[in-house]
């Protein structure tokens, strides 16, 4: 049973249809059925931004999940789609940015908008995502070498930090939305850190024996 589910989840077609499906369901279908409400562009702006940041969070949660559950078939199946998920986060962020361009209406307002930290922080987060997306192909990995490539792609964490902050100031009370994302990612990373420490010190013994002391000492 698990094996079949993992096989389905691990399939390229599954990943692509979920990633594209989210956009179709949340952005395109409502755009054609009047489901975007009184200010459709404002709605597209917010929803595309939300999709982008949740997708980014999804890809960042894959590494800690794999460390925490190395034997889970599902986690491993999901980990096969890191590149797709990461690139899709960038694409949704680009849609979000295009909405911002339209939203501002004219050049004066658009240029003026870049004087606000809210906007230039969002734009710098996007810039990181674009660099990472462009370098997400086998050729670049080979060209840069695995180590350098990995180092470069750690920028994803910086992008997440910047963009969660960007999200938290996007509207009155938006911290109350962004905080869930931040807490979820931080606790995953924390759990991952604890787990790596334990396995480093006690490579053979079962996790349970050393865990209590380790948690105290970290």
């Amino acid at each position: 049973m698990m094996k079949t589910i993992a096989a389905i989840i691990g399939h390229k077609a599954f990943a692509l249809s979920v990633i594209i499906g989210i956009g179709v369901w949340l952005l395109i279908v409502p755009a054609f059925t009047g489901g975007l409400g009184a200010d459709p562009l404002d709605r597209l702006l917010h929803v595309s931004g939300e999709i982008a940041i949740w997708t980014l969070a999804a890809v960042l949660s894959l590494t800690p999940l794999r460390v925490l559950f190395p034997k889970s078939r599902i986690v491993n199946a999901l980990n096969r789609h890191r590149r797709y998920i990461g690139v899709s986060s960038c694409i949704y962020a680009l849609v979000h940015f295009s909405c911002h361009l339209l939203y501002q209406g004219d050049w004066d307002d658009l240029l003026a908008s870049f004087s606000k930290p809210f906007i230039w922080l969002g734009a710098s987060g996007l810039l990181i995502l674009v660099v990472l997306a462009i370098t997400s192909n086998n050729w670049t990995v080979r060209k840069l070498g695995g180590r350098n490539w990995k180092l470069l792609h750690r920028l994803a964490y910086l992008a997440a930090a910047i963009l969660i902050y960007h999200q938290s100031i996007a509207g009155k009370g938006h911290w109350y939305i962004a905080r869930w994302l931040l807490f979820a990612l931080l606790s995953l990373e924390l759990a991952r850190l604890v787990k790596t420490q334990i396995t480093k010190k006690n490579p053979r013994t079962a996790v349970t024996t050393g865990s209590r002391q380790e948690i105290k000492s970290t």
Partner: peptide, 22 residues
């Protein structure tokens, strides 16, 4: 006087649809 995060120079008119101008 701007809001710290956006300009208050112009506004979007609700009801203008997707390409509503400011």
């Amino acid at each position: 006087v701007d809001h710290p995060r956006w300009s208050q120079r112009s506004e979007r008119v609700i009801g203008g649809g997707f390409f509503s101008s400011r």
